[in-house]
Design a binder for these strands. Structure first.
Lengths: 211, 211
DNA sequence: ACGGCAATACCTGATAAAGTGTATTTTTTT
DNA sequence: AAAAAAATACACTTTATCAGGTATTGCCGT
């Protein structure tokens, strides 16, 4: 007897569910056991049924895909979860993976891509469809290229700011005058046209300019 | 004639360079063309020589692996770059991938793991050694489990704070009293024992609790 | 040797945030 | 239906940040 991977599809567009079912029905060792339009229904289901693989849309009503993935993985770390969406954004993909996702596929991927990604994910790999790979490594050319960097001292100060230090504390840490730190801090804010330190830290972290 | 992948190793520990060379010398289609102990030397080299694959330590003197990878990928997007380190941290791995890295291997990985990862990376995949996979998806059980989440309102406010809005602006945006926003803001800071909004935002972003 | 950038430092006034305490209402969970 | 959690609101004090303008020194690259 052939062991088939019990697979569940979650997507709030019935059309997409049907499309994916069609694609997957050709695969020998994949057996679609259920289809859901919401994450809540899925959570109920997996409590009582064996599931090996979940293909889920990331944009779902009520509970989003990232949180859903996190919740499932906490209780069932062995279930392989692949995220899907129509358009995508780098940070979203990374978040999904950081929350336990085993892969991410754009819905416009070809049948072959779907198939390969699914097989590899079952095999224990972390997989991305071609376009996703491009997305997560391409912002280099646009996002980051034209952003002026922090100077050494500015980065020191920004780092301490992200640790919640006050101007005085930073001055003490770096053996500088309070006023010097104040100047650096203002220069950084002006350089990136940020209103305050909170916005600055968010900006720097999102662009990997800290650490 | 067999096409061999021209490979460069960068690591500031000569011992490690030698070890990796030994491992790789067994592989048919990998040819080690150079070894460096610093990123600067590597940058010079790739300007004049063809390179297909780079294995680099993440902790390097002068320029760190993440920045090095970013710099190389900007000019030479086709070079496959695999990061390595002895111990690792989730955010570091993700940063490396976001900056164009094609994979990440812990140095204690087995020869087979090294070999497989390298072949798959050359094949266009994004690869992680086993332990790295565990690291990037496991914090669920420790990091995140015991961290209480933000309530809806708190998340609304935290999000606006990360956009640089002041208490008054947030109050206006959400049609709340200035004082209410002030209370929420204080509650959030106290919940996570943060000194100020800057530290809070850094914390929330690093733990994917925003967005 | 020079220009430009980075790092250092000072002053001041207006505004905002942080710390502490309290309290009512609504919503959610048990 | 009761208990718990979340959302709402107010007052007051202290401390920190933001924004403006200015200036000196050292270093790096041309």
């Amino acid at each position: 007897m052939i062991m088939k991977y019990k697979t569940v599809i979650v997507d709030d567009h019935p059309i997409v569910i049907s499309g994916i079912s069609g694609l997957l029905s050709d695969l020998d060792n994949i057996e679609i056991v259920e289809k859901f339009e919401s994450g809540i229904a899925l959570l109920d289901y997996i409590e009582d049924h064996k599931v090996d693989l979940i293909l889920m849309d990331i944009f779902l009503p009520v509970i989003n895909g990232v949180d859903l993935c996190k919740t499932i993985k906490q209780k069932h770390p062995k279930i392989v979860i692949i995220g899907m969406s129509s358009q995508s954004e780098r940070s979203l993909v990374m978040q999904f993976i950081q929350n336990g996702g085993n892969g991410y596929i754009l819905k416009n991927a070809s049948f072959d891509e779907f198939k390969e990604c699914i097989y590899k994910a079952i095999d224990g790999e972390i997989v991305f469809s071609e376009e996703v790979k491009t997305i997560i490594s391409q912002p280099l050319s646009e996002d980051l290229e034209r952003i002026p960097g922090l100077s050494r001292r500015e980065r020191d100060i920004a780092l301490l700011l992200s640790q919640g230090k006050s101007t005085q504390e930073i001055a003490d840490d770096l053996f500088l005058s309070f006023l010097t730190v104040q100047t650096h801090r203002r220069n950084i804010l002006q350089k990136y046209k940020m209103k305050n330190v909170a916005e600055l830290i968010a900006f720097l972290l999102k662009n990997n300019m800290l650490n």
